[in-house]
Design a protein around this nucleic acid. Structure first.
Lengths: 354, 354
DNA sequence: GTGAAAGCGCTAACAG
DNA sequence: CTGTTAGCGCTTTCAC
């Protein structure tokens, strides 16, 4: 039962090689190779014979062997923290499109939000000798990423590059958080709380952005944060924590949409109406936020474009056309929907303060 | 700019090989190999020297080269139709867990719901010589899958196996659709419509299940279907189409949760309340359905278990312990939430019929 | 225990 | 245009 046990499945023994095809088509291996690689310079007759042999034998070039000699795989590896966040679906589709245009295959991996699994996922991709690596909001330690960056070109998404060997494509999370806070303040809110998104770098930066914006707007005394996470459960937990606070905030900024949706659930469960009793802002502007039933005010992050850019940066490195690090910053924007509104008039409580 | 251009990135030139490690540790390549593979039979002193050399050189075994000689990659390939459907997140996490236990790495791919891209994704995985392949609800043609199955062990999820070379793990979609229809009928509905999920096999089977259940319950005259798709947009389109129908159904079964949520949006937009004016049932019981704001009655499909089973079936094949096809069928269940209720009393319309 | 040699399937020169 | 040769980096006998 050991994975090291010898494989005896019938398929692996019968897989034809380039040699089998050559023999069957009565040509040399080189010609077969040229055909599978789409090179020209093979006579029409032989080419036809080769294609026929390939078809008959159900032959597939062993790109393992091919990349061993070519020293490149034409594969881009992508590590995503998890598949549950629709934001990454957008990123991925941008990656796919651009990679396809450039003739690369894309292979995904996930670290299930656990640093140890993430490291192993990255390691697996590196061992596979992918030509480039995209790490979406990685939680792995800086030194792990920097180490990996010495091995293959890496683009990190929504995280600062650990060193000069990596490029990065980030949404300006500080500015995004600022937009969220300003929007609430503009509506008249002062007690604007944050539900944090955990230890990930994007979450931490959004927290920083929240703090800065609050101070900038003269609301430093109203700063209130609760522990959360970038998923529904985190949002629920955050609300539980905020419910202990006195007075309860009139607006809540959740570190991402999933978190906001969890918060939404918990708020309603506690009998609070949105946005009458409390306003709510998310981050990522995922497809979820746009659902009529949710209709969540959120900070938009152009995931698809970010994915495209990441591939672009990788390609420049793989191509050798650029060797200096590049750090793209995309600008977030506010999308107002139905979860934000002016605070309820409540002079009773407001009067007490100040 | 051609992808065929020679790679000149600095990293690829400096990657150390097993030979470099051996030289640095002053041992033979064989010993280094034994260490990287975790074999014992290497003296403590040499082992330490080797590990030190590996560390200093930042060496990673080239599993490309390794698998070329071992004739296996210890990689499981997984093709998912798209990353937007949370159901597949569950499947994937089941796959990951079991694969890790068995010592396999998992690599994902997506065909973005387009048969041609799917074929290319499958082909890529096969060329990579993955040890086994899981195809989640593939849209590719039967012959493509059968062809692939002659090459590596394949498990298809939620689709009939194209031939004896593939195993399958499926939810009983016929029964699941039956549960949905019966639930509505039990509540007193008769005009139960279906929003179809498109051309995928799961969608077609659910449609079949709907038709059978309607006939079985004596509701054949009330059969009403609308074109849709397994995403929000499909649900919206389906509702538009149903709105043309006279009389409008009192209950709608949508082919999956995403579709149901789109339908929900469109229904509310049309001024219909759920479940007062119309009941709604989804399929998959995704995390979305469980959200308080959505609280969608749905048919549960144990995605995580299905993923685990798929890996199990693959492992039996890879191990050679089984050569006969196996087809697992998991049983769906009904999860009642807030989108279903008894039909509104409406003798005016009911009276007209029959 | 350890090292040397052969070869996995393929490509990349180069010679015909 | 076509065939031959020599590796890619690694594992795997098989001697020592």
């Amino acid at each position: 039962m050991s994975p090291r046990g010898k494989s005896v499945n019938p398929q692996s023994q019968s897989r034809p090689t380039i040699h089998d095809v050559a023999r069957r088509a009565k040509v040399s291996k080189s010609l077969v190779s040229m055909v599978t690689r789409g090179e020209n310079g093979v006579s029409a007759g032989k080419r036809a014979a080769i294609l026929e042999a390939i078809e008959e034998l159900n032959y597939r070039p062993n790109i393992i062997a091919r990349s061993l000699v070519q020293r490149r795989t034409r594969i881009l590896g992508v590590m995503i923290p998890d598949l549950r966040n629709p934001f990454f679906s957008d990123v991925v589709s941008g990656i796919q499109v651009r990679a396809r245009e450039l003739g690369f295959r894309v292979l995904f991996n996930t670290g299930e939000r656990q640093p140890a699994l993430e490291e192993s996922a990255i390691e697996g991709l590196l061992e596979l000798r992918v030509d480039g690596l995209i790490l979406a909001a990685p939680r792995a330690e800086d030194r792990v990423i920097a180490h990996a960056g010495r091995w293959a070109p890496i683009v990190v998404l929504n995280r600062n590059s650990p060193d000069d060997s990596c490029d990065s494509v980030s949404n300006d999370n500080i500015a995004g958080a600022g937009l969220a806070v300003e929007h609430c303040a503009d509506l008249g809110h002062r007690r604007i709380a944050l539900i944090e998104g955990g230890a990930g770098i994007a979450a931490r930066t959004r927290c920083e952005g929240y703090l800065r914006a609050m101070r900038r707007l003269g609301l430093a005394d109203h700063i209130l944060t609760a522990q959360g996470a970038h998923n529904e459960e985190g949002g629920r937990r955050g609300v539980q924590e905020l419910l202990q606070a006195e007075p309860f905030p009139t607006a809540i900024f959740a570190s991402n949409d999933l978190c906001a949706i969890g918060a939404m659930d918990a708020l309603e469960e506690a009998g609070l109406r949105i946005p009458e009793d409390v306003s709510l802002v998310g981050f990522d502007n995922t497809t979820l936020a746009a659902l009529r039933h949710i209709s969540l005010t959120s900070i938009n992050q152009p995931g698809c474009d970010m994915g495209r850019s990441a591939v672009e940066r990788l390609w420049e490195r793989i191509d050798g056309e650029r060797t200096t690090p590049q750090h793209d910053v995309v600008v977030p924007s506010l999308v107002v929907r139905s979860t934000t509104g002016p605070p309820r008039e409540d002079p009773g409580i407001e009067g007490v303060e100040f």
